[in-house]
């Protein structure tokens, strides 16, 4: 089974966990850091599956372009996240400024 590399939750997986599944590598690492910055209030779980990491945030998962640049230490266009975005839970909103995962119906 996978292990959790980061967690900010006391409870179990909720039904409203959303977020990306990313190919492992430097962009994924930066995204893990960015998710923690960009979703300060959300419960978070990051699962390590070696080839990929699954990031789960409760309710909504936001990743900002500027936060990615900060953690990567280089210019980063949001579209570049697609090079590692292998799957995701929830719906997606993809803009040049941020990528957002969310549900319409929250339980």
């Amino acid at each position: 089974m996978h292990d959790q590399v980061a967690a900010r939750t006391s409870g179990n997986d909720s039904k409203n966990m959303v977020g990306p599944v990313l190919k492992s590598g430097d962009i994924a690492e930066a995204a893990i850091a960015a998710v923690q910055d960009d979703n300060p209030a959300a419960a978070l779980i990051v699962e390590n599956h070696e080839a990929y990491v699954r990031i789960k945030a409760e309710g909504q998962c936001l990743i900002r372009q500027s936060t990615m640049e900060h953690h990567l230490g280089r210019p980063f266009e949001m579209a570049e996240l697609e090079t590692v975005l292998a799957s995701f839970a929830g719906q997606i909103e993809a803009t040049p400024e941020y990528m957002r995962f969310y549900f319409d119906k929250v339980f």
Binding site: V21, K23, A51, Y52, E82, T83, V84, L85, A86, S87, F88
Partner: peptide
């Protein structure tokens, strides 16, 4: 194959 899957996700 994980690279292939990034196209599918879109």
């Amino acid at each position: 194959i994980s690279s292939v899957q990034t196209d599918e996700a879109r």
